[in-house]
């Protein structure tokens, strides 16, 4: 089950970064990226047949590079960077939920919020899935937490 969730999370994340931010996975950079500084994390909550949270953590200046490229701003503001990472988390969440729950369900995704590295939430629950993706401009870690499933 976790393997399936992980696979679907990975596919949703890759598609989102490629189509929205024009960023591609760079597997050869995985070793270099292991010690990159944490820029911050965008988070969305979702409710529906399954409920939980999706976190997208940016490392190594990814969110700044992404905002500069996508928004065409030489020096994007922190607000722009956080906004973009939030939109990325929103889209990944919207993409992965029908993949894991089926397309006939109604989900409600909350507005994104941003967590600075110092505000990182300590989740007591184990993540349902987590993927780490080295990209051409830093790295990203996407974590899916499922807190509730509705009985059929």
């Amino acid at each position: 089950m976790m393997e399936t969730l992980q696979k679907e999370l990975y596919k949703s994340a890759i598609a989102t970064f490629e189509h929205m931010a024009f960023l591609f996975e760079m597997p050869e950079m995985e070793d270099q990226n292991r010690s990159l500084p944490h820029d911050g994390t965008a988070m969305v909550t979702f409710t529906g047949p399954i409920s939980g949270e999706l976190h997208v953590a940016s490392y190594g200046g990814l969110m700044q590079a992404m905002a500069a490229d996508v928004l065409g701003e030489e020096t994007p503001t922190m607000e722009q960077q956080q906004d973009l990472l939030g939109e990325v988390s929103n889209v990944i969440c919207g993409s992965v939920l029908p993949r894991i729950a089926g397309s006939g369900h109604v989900f409600r995704i909350g507005p994104p919020s941003f967590l600075h590295p110092s505000d990182a939430r300590n989740h007591h629950s184990e993540p349902a899935a987590r993927v780490n993706i080295p990209l051409s401009e830093g790295a990203v870690e996407i974590t899916l937490f499922i807190t509730e499933t509705q009985d059929k």
Partner: peptide, 9 residues
């Protein structure tokens, strides 16, 4: 243009 996935909607 949306993240909406409900087929009914």
């Amino acid at each position: 243009v949306s993240t909406e996935s409900s087929t009914a909607r």
